[in-house]
Design a protein around this nucleic acid. Structure first.
Length: 722
DNA sequence: TCGCCCACAATTTTT
DNA sequence: TTGTGGGCGA
């Protein structure tokens, strides 16, 4: 086992200062690649080893479950396996969930609550909206939920929301909020934001619980503090109030979750909250080459509202940062693939490379190209495994086995596989449940006695018996067995087997994959309960799916890449509208966030950084010219090495200026190869770079680049036409 | 009650 | 281009 001398030897003096700082609040401002995870881990080890703090008195909050697991593993390596088990390490959501399972009953939270993800939330909200006779177009479920989520992150419950509602719109949302909360309660369910909100509520409204948790957590450490929202902030500060041993680590330049309610002020004003705080700044980066660091610093330097600070590195010089201007998205993917092959060809590993992009949609072109060229890759996030129909169906059964009150799941599987309980039956059941003041599940249970329709009675009875059997089985079997049991009992497996198609076969494989996950969770958590399994699935983060595999290129969004590092990083799609995203460019604050995101992306690279953009990009199946990202302009030209000129993928595609550009004016009738004829509404600019807006008959309005789009003028607008 | 077909919207980032 | 939801016919 480790001695405190060993511990010291692997840290630089400033890191050591942070690790060794005594009791009381501590702020660690840690630049990208400055070893903050190391500091955090070693500080915990130091607390236990040198200062004799019992592991059970330490709470560590990480940003992903994966980070929590890694910290656990490292602590186990340093201190032996018994220690990390006693520690509380996890994401905010996981910690809150744990607290609520233990103590939630004090505020009326069923300890067997299920956690509703975005999809469940939308399903429930859609129902709420319909029930309230509110127009779904005016109040789309996702939009209403976004607003409610924002409120919850600010610890504004439906009562407070209603009180402060000013506009008619607010009032409608307040009504929906209240109804939504009621339904959640009936389902014994919490949504993501509830986990935080309710945990805070527990601590605020039930003093014995607050006292208990304050006494327990004598030392609290929070990673990525710059990305905490108000609810998380309040939670941490409530818990730390007694012992004031709060250590927060973060970097305001890496705050990228403002849109989710995170408030950088939490870290910027830490010293105001804790005037006695010690502040340690880690400014030496061990990750990047000087070339990468100075390019990244140039970009982030353009943010007007930041704590000016400069990272430095003692790392040796490396390759210059490369910029590639691709012809289009296809060419971009082609070039990246070529670079990966060259990297592997010169002795590198595919796993060294990460391709980062702003939106998930960008992954497809790389995926297609890599598939075609046989480059192994993994995609983190995006269309998730758990969103597949068959997975969600079976999970719904498992959730019902755990908690039959879960109505969203109940409705989902009531007639899956088909058992003759259709819309009409459900309607009657609902009406009857409402009259009797019963939940849907209770209504179902009593349906056969009450004579709700003669024909479906047997089907309903069988369904109730099925759920009862599942519940009974789940009470004394591990998750993987419940899953196998449910697959057979529900007839789901039989259904897929009978279908016999390739699609059905792959669905079965997916379900086997789910069983494998159950086994994995059992091994990892040392607990195979259904509760542990469901919780694991519900609270998984995107980056959790990242596997450090040497043989695979990693594709992921910039957000997912936070906290990771790779020898080679490709930052793709550096175009205005895409990155910075069009939705962010309007507001100064969100533009700054985009810039921080760019900084985060660039600083993931250890030795090589490759920036790419495409001159034209397809969206909705149609190509548009692009403008290079402003972030590229923010990097001094001498820091960038421009790579070879793009290769045009199709030989007959004319080059920019060579092609005769038709003269087009507003009012002209034009013809397009795929869109047919239309009328020109607007012409912006002139020459080949002009953008024309055309309303195509039956197709709609399109914006096209005159230089690229195959347009021909059919009829000139007459001088008299208007 | 179910399944098919057509119209139309969609792209930010995530627990 | 792809996915989804609603409407309609069997």
């Amino acid at each position: 086992m480790l001695s405190s001398q060993d511990l010291d030897a692997s840290l630089n003096p400033i890191q050591l200062e942070a690790v060794r700082a005594g009791d009381g609040p501590l702020l660690v401002l840690a630049g990208a690649g400055s070893g903050k995870t190391r500091v955090l881990t070693y500080r915990i080890a130091d607390l236990i080893l040198r200062r004799g703090v019992a592991p059970a008195h330490i709470l560590a909050v990480t940003f992903t479950n994966k980070a929590a697991g890694q910290m656990r593993d490292r602590l186990a390596g340093l201190l032996g396996p018994a220690v990390p088990r006693a520690l509380w390490i996890g994401t905010f959501h996981a910690i809150c969930s744990r607290i609520l399972r233990i103590s939630g009953r004090w505020i009326g939270v069923d300890p067997r609550f299920v956690i509703y993800d975005e999809d469940d939330q939308r399903t429930l909200m859609r129902e709420v909206i319909r029930e309230a006779n509110v127009d779904e177009r005016q109040f789309p479920p996702a939009g209403v939920l976004a607003e409610i989520g924002r409120a919850k992150n600010e610890l504004v419950d439906h009562v407070a929301f209603a009180r402060r509602a000013e506009t008619h719109r607010d009032e409608v949302i307040a009504r929906l909020y209240a109804a939504y909360e009621r339904r959640l309660g009936e389902c014994h369910a919490l949504d993501f934001d509830d986990l935080l909100l309710r945990a805070v509520q527990l601590l605020r409204e039930h003093p014995p619980a607050l006292a208990e948790y304050q006494a327990r957590f004598r030392h609290i450490l929070v990673d990525e503090y710059q990305d905490t929202n108000h609810a998380q902030y309040v939670l941490v500060n409530l818990l730390a109030r007694q012992h004031r041993n709060l250590c927060v680590v973060g970097d305001d330049d890496q705050a990228i979750y403002r849109w989710r309610g995170a408030d950088v002020r939490n870290i910027l004003e830490f010293e105001r909250d804790y005037p006695e705080a010690r502040v340690v700044t880690l400014a030496q980066t061990y990750r990047c080459t000087p070339q990468i660091l100075r390019a990244a610093s140039a970009v982030i330097g353009h943010n007007p509202h930041r704590h000016a600070k400069s990272l430095w590195t003692a790392n040796p010089d490396g390759a210059p940062v490369t910029l590639y201007e691709a012809f289009d998205g296809y060419d971009e993917a082609r070039y990246v693939a070529e670079q990966i092959r060259a990297h592997v060809g010169s002795g590198g590993r595919a796993g060294d490379v990460a391709v980062l992009y702003r939106t998930h949609a960008q992954s497809r072109q790389f995926e297609e190209m890599f598939l075609r060229l046989g480059i192994p890759y993994q995609i983190v996030g995006g269309v998730r495994f758990y969103e597949r129909t068959e997975i969600r169906d079976m999970l719904a059964y498992l959730r019902l086995a755990y908690n039959p009150a879960d109505e969203v799941s109940l409705r989902r599987v009531l007639n899956v596989p088909r058992r003759g309980i259709g819309e009409a039956t459900l309607r009657r059941l609902e009406a009857w449940a409402r009259d009797e003041g019963l939940s849907l599940w209770e209504a179902l249970r009593r349906a056969q006695d009450a004579g709700v329709g003669p024909q479906p009675r047997r089907a309903l009875r069988e369904f109730v018996a099925l759920i009862d059997a599942l519940v009974a089985h789940a009470s004394d079997h591990p998750a993987r067995e419940v899953l196998a049991y449910a697959l057979d009992l529900t007839g789901y497996r039989r259904l897929l087997e009978a279908e016999g198609t390739e699609d059905a076969h792959s669905r079965l494989e997916n379900l086997e994959e789910l069983a494998a996950v159950a086994r994995e969770v059992e091994e990892m958590a040392g607990e195979g309960t259904l509760e542990a399994f469901l919780q694991h699935l519900a609270l998984q983060t995107d980056p959790d799916a990242f596997e450090d595999r040497p043989d695979r290129v990693t594709l992921m969004t910039l957000h997912s890449a936070k906290g990771l590092e790779f020898p080679v990083v490709v930052l793709a799609g550096l175009e205005e509208g895409l990155f910075p995203h069009a939705r962010a460019a309007e507001q100064e604050a969100s533009l700054e966030e985009e810039r921080r995101l760019c900084y985060v992306g660039m600083t993931r690279a250890k030795s090589r950084l490759l920036l790419t953009y495409a001159r034209q990009r397809a969206s909705y199946g149609m190509s548009r010219p692009t403008v290079p990202s402003r972030f590229l302009d923010e990097i001094p030209a001498e820091y960038l090495e421009r790579a070879a000129t793009p290769r045009t993928p199709t030989a007959d595609w004319p080059e920019d200026e060579q092609r005769p550009v038709p003269e087009v004016a507003v009012g002209d009738t034009v013809r397009h190869r795929t869109f047919g004829t239309g009328r020109v509404l607007e012409v912006d600019g002139d020459g080949p770079r002009a953008i024309v807006t055309v309303r195509f008959d039956g197709v709609g309005t399109k914006r096209l680049a005159l230089g690229y789009a195959p347009l021909e003028v059919v009829q000139r607008a007459g001088p008299a036409s208007s």
